[in-house]
């Protein structure tokens, strides 16, 4: 038997769908504007501003960007490898730390937790941190400088610890009776049970690595080692410098990148991820809700 739908429900649904569609369209607009901007001619943008449908289509910006494609491929390579390696390694370290801190048998877990927590409130500041990484660890211009400083965060460890606390103490205990060692317990029992938190924190980390430009900004001096976001930021920054007081000292033929070039760079840098996201997203959502309906 079909359930009859009330007229008010139909009306409600219609309005809802219309509103949501409109809203979705609004969210798409900026992307479309960037896209069409990247295909516009420079002169038109200066004279008439950005348009959704340019009068004059032009591939000039993309030609300019791809006149040196290695730069972009290099950046993609760095960012992808960094994100993969960073997330895997970071998750491993964070979950180990979280596990140890969550175990009742560990006598100093509270003081150690506080020690970790303390660093989120007070830190040495930028310069001592920079000195540590450059002068003592000698990581200047090394890929490790992109990885190590962001690998483990206190916040994630605490998150992980709190989640693992909810795993009953009797589970590791039973495994111990069956003769499992500490590492086996962690690997075979705790990790699978922590899948939801691993997914959440993994997502945080992956996004963090993907979006990070600050490390590269400070530590990387070789152009081929630039990650993607920094490359994009660099392109935009050379335009921004014109707005500062140095502008007067720049050589007269210093030209900022064209508006269209900026748009094209944004498309090339973010495009693949934007297109990838809808397909990958469902895994994230699944991961996040796994633990939600546990009795």
């Amino acid at each position: 038997m079909k359930i009859r739908t009330e007229r008010s429900t139909v009306l409600f649904n219609t309005i809802g769908y219309v509103l949501i569609s409109l809203f979705a369209l609004l969210c798409l607009l900026p992307f479309l504007l960037v896209l069409s901007g990247s295909f516009s001619s420079e002169q038109e943008i200066i004279a008439e501003g950005f348009k959704l449908i340019p009068d004059q289509w032009s591939l000039e910006a993309y030609r300019a960007v791809f006149s040196n494609p290695e730069q972009i491929f290099d950046a993609y390579r760095v960012t992808i490898l960094l994100t993969l390696a960073g997330t895997a390694l970071g998750l491993f370290l964070t979950s180990m730390a979280g596990y140890v801190l969550s175990r009742q048998e560990f006598k100093y877990r509270n003081s150690l937790s506080f020690f970790i927590y303390f660093t989120t409130l007070f830190s040495g500041g930028l310069i001592p941190w920079y000195i540590l990484i450059v002068n003592y660890l000698q990581l200047k211009d090394s890929y490790l400088a992109l990885l190590v400083p962001v690998l483990v965060s206190a916040w994630n460890i605490i998150l992980m610890k709190n989640f693992m606390k909810s795993i009953p103490e009797s589970i590791p205990e039973s495994a111990k009776i069956d003769g499992a060692g500490e590492f086996t317990i962690y690997l075979k029992l705790i990790l699978p049970l922590s899948a939801p938190s691993l997914a959440t924190i993994g997502l945080f980390m992956a996004l963090g690595f993907w979006n990070d430009w600050f490390m590269a900004n400070l530590f990387i001096t070789t152009e081929s080692k630039y990650p993607l976001q920094f490359l994009l930021y660099k392109i935009l920054a050379s335009a921004a410098v014109l707005k500062t007081s140095i502008a007067g000292n720049l050589s007269p033929d210093f030209k900022p990148p064209a508006e269209t070039l900026k748009m094209a760079a944004a498309i090339i840098v973010t495009g693949p991820i934007v297109f990838l996201y809808p397909f990958v997203q469902r895994f994230f959502v699944k991961g996040l809700t796994i633990g939600a309906v546990k009795g």
């Binding site: 930028l126 430009w213 900004n217 400070l218 920094f230 930021y233 660099k234 920054a237 050379s238 921004a240 410098v241």
Partner: peptide, 8 residues
């Protein structure tokens, strides 16, 4: 580079 050059 020009990003944040003062900080660097």
């Amino acid at each position: 580079t020009w990003n944040d050059w003062q900080t660097k």
